[in-house]
Amino acid sequence: MRLAAVLLVAFIAMPALAQQGTETVAPLTVTVGANHAPPYRILSGGKESGLYIDIFRNIADRLGWEVIYREAPFRRVLRMMQMGEVDIMLGPLRTPERESMMAFVAPAFPPERKLFFYTDESNRITRYSDLDGKRIGVLEGASYFHRFDTDDQLQKEPAPRYKNLMLMMQKDRVDVVIAPELVGIYTVNNLDMAVSISPFFVPGERSYIAVAKNSPVLDYADDIRAALKLIKHEGVYEDLILRYMERREPEGKISGSGSAGEL
């Protein structure tokens, strides 16, 4: 086990040394396109944080990379990947359509349930068929699960950020908002809204570090995977996951003005 760890460290060190080992070779600079979606990706006041960014920062540090972040709505980031304006995207789900423009290099981020948030009891979702006739708030360009994504009979109302969607629900412009668990709860807590979570939910899938197929960073795909293995071996990855998971509200409620018994 110790020998394997030493070999892994040596393998990780090679690309960084190759980039920074002489005065004439500058470190690789990569541009990451990211939408502001706390607590995954937090881009505010020139500072970057959040679970996905913290994980990628640890990977980039071990590779000796310099990272530049460009913030834009999710759908715009997808377009930037397609146009070669950014190298990397953090957290997209793998879909056939996206595979045409990006390589899903490493399943670096944990799976997370997709939840249905509501404010009026008549909009409680207990089964998929309850979505019929509902105005459902969705993030522009996002993928949730195949049946939902391809269901043209559902009335989906898009917005560029989850904050916008929750406010739309508060103003009765949508009945239900679908969102990943952490970002949904984080958004509701920050808005101090009285919101409930439906018993019907969809299990999550792992999301990826994706590299644009027209980016030279794609040549470093093996290095990204090796660096991810290293931070997992060091315990850094697990520590980051636990730190963010512990910020969730206890099961059974959402903080703020929500009533007892709400998630």
Rank of each mutant, 00 (worst) to 15 (best):
I88Q: 02
R225Y: 00
Q153C: 04
E205A: 08
M80D: 12
G64M: 02
L131V: 05
F109H: 10
L230T: 11
R147K: 15
I231D: 07
E71Y: 01
K229D: 11
F117K: 03
V217M: 12
P27F: 10
I241V: 15
D120V: 14
E140K: 11
E85A: 11
A159D: 07
L240S: 07
Y118I: 12
N123T: 03
P96V: 12
Q20H: 11
L165A: 01
R70G: 00
D61L: 10
E246T: 09
G252H: 05
G141A: 00
A60F: 06
E238Y: 06
G133F: 04
L51M: 15
D172L: 01
T187C: 05
H146D: 14
G261M: 10
A227S: 10
E99N: 06
G45Q: 11
F104C: 08
A18G: 15
L240Y: 06
N189I: 06
Q82W: 04
R70T: 03
I125E: 00
S207R: 13
T95I: 03
E71H: 01
V86L: 08
Y220W: 10
P110M: 11
V174K: 00
V236R: 06
L167F: 02
Q20G: 11
V217Y: 02
G137D: 09
E85D: 13
S215D: 01
L131E: 05
Y118A: 05
P92S: 01
Q155W: 15
I197C: 04
A221R: 14
A60P: 00
M245T: 06
G252W: 09
A106V: 15
G256E: 02
A221H: 10
E238Q: 15
G204V: 08
E262P: 06
F148I: 11
V183A: 15
R2W: 13
E112Q: 13
V25H: 10
S122Q: 14
R62M: 00
P15V: 05
K163F: 13
D172Q: 15
A72V: 05
N35A: 12
P92H: 07
E66A: 14
D149H: 06
R75S: 13
I42Y: 03
Y52C: 00
S100Q: 14
A212W: 02
N58V: 08
L7S: 09
M81S: 06
P111W: 03
K114Y: 04
N58K: 12
R135Q: 12
P180E: 09
A37F: 13
M101Q: 11
K171N: 14
A212G: 15
D54W: 04
L17K: 08
G204D: 07
A142T: 06
L228G: 01
G258N: 13
V183M: 14
A106Y: 14
E71V: 13
L191S: 03
V174R: 09
E112H: 02
V176P: 04
L230A: 13
P73W: 04
P110T: 09
R62V: 09
R79P: 00
F11N: 10
R248D: 02
T22R: 13
A13K: 03
Y162A: 02
E251F: 11
D87W: 03
M168F: 14
D222S: 08
F117H: 10
Y40S: 08
D120F: 00
V6T: 14
L17H: 14
D130R: 06
E23M: 07
H233P: 00
L240V: 08
I88L: 02
V32A: 06
A106T: 13
E71N: 07
S143D: 14
R147Q: 09
F116Q: 05
